[in-house]
Amino acid sequence: MTTSRAVTWDVMASHGYETAWVVFDGQTLRARGRAVGTDPEPYWVSYELDTGDGYVTRQLRVTTETPEVTRTLELRHDGRGGWTADGEPLPEVHGALDCDLGLCPLTNTMPVLRHGLHRAAGEREFLMAWVSVPDLAVRPSVQTYTHLGGADGGGRVRYASGDFRSDLDLDADGLVVDYPELATRLTPR
């Protein structure tokens, strides 16, 4: 069954906003999003994200614009653990299943959905292909997601990476409702 959602977040970490159009189709996700931020400098971001079965990232296309420069990135996953950035191999993120676009609450969704962590007990550690914004550098990031409880079909999941920890509130679709220190979803009027 295919469902579509439009979500907007107040992204406190960048002093900006993000809106994404998300399509769920079975065990896949497609999204288009745009964000504007002012920290670390004024920037715009537009992205397209496609996953394969099991919500495994297949491709992330990103464009960032600052007053001085426009950057683009095409990040691809071959489905077997290999990654490329603009066609160049990224051996440092080999084995990762997901991308994580910096300051983007949407990209927390894939590992949560794959393992049902917003609905059921469990803890999982992931290697992610983390993309910083606005420079679009790709780096490995080890992240842990831990189920803390459920409510109204959604749940609470602890995100941890290095010394950073935050307890995320997620809806029934695994989308972030509240990510303390990063973003809070705005509700339509």
Results as ranks from 00 to 15, higher is better:
132 S>P: 01
68 E>L: 08
130 W>F: 15
100 D>P: 08
83 W>H: 00
158 R>N: 01
76 R>Y: 11
20 A>F: 00
41 E>L: 15
184 T>R: 15
58 R>M: 01
127 L>M: 09
99 C>P: 00
17 Y>D: 10
86 D>C: 04
89 P>H: 11
59 Q>D: 13
145 Y>P: 02
52 G>H: 04
116 G>D: 13
137 A>V: 13
55 Y>V: 00
111 P>T: 07
160 A>L: 01
187 T>P: 08
36 V>W: 13
72 T>N: 15
57 T>P: 03
90 L>E: 04
62 V>M: 00
163 D>T: 03
166 S>P: 08
151 A>T: 13
176 V>G: 11
42 P>Y: 10
126 F>A: 01
72 T>D: 15
116 G>L: 10
58 R>C: 02
60 L>I: 06
100 D>Y: 09
31 A>P: 02
49 L>Q: 00
142 V>H: 14
104 C>P: 02
1 M>G: 15
112 V>Y: 11
49 L>W: 00
76 R>N: 14
17 Y>C: 04
181 E>N: 13
10 D>W: 10
150 G>K: 07
55 Y>M: 01
93 V>H: 11
72 T>H: 15
22 V>K: 03
167 D>Y: 07
153 G>V: 10
185 R>W: 05
40 P>W: 03
162 G>E: 03
121 A>G: 14
92 E>R: 12
188 P>D: 14
77 H>G: 04
142 V>R: 14
148 L>S: 03
44 W>M: 13
30 R>P: 06
55 Y>F: 14
63 T>D: 12
81 G>C: 01
62 V>A: 01
55 Y>E: 01
8 T>K: 09
155 G>K: 02
27 Q>V: 06
56 V>A: 09
150 G>M: 12
121 A>P: 09
97 L>H: 10
132 S>I: 05
109 T>K: 00
82 G>W: 05
66 T>K: 08
15 H>W: 06
88 E>R: 14
70 T>A: 11
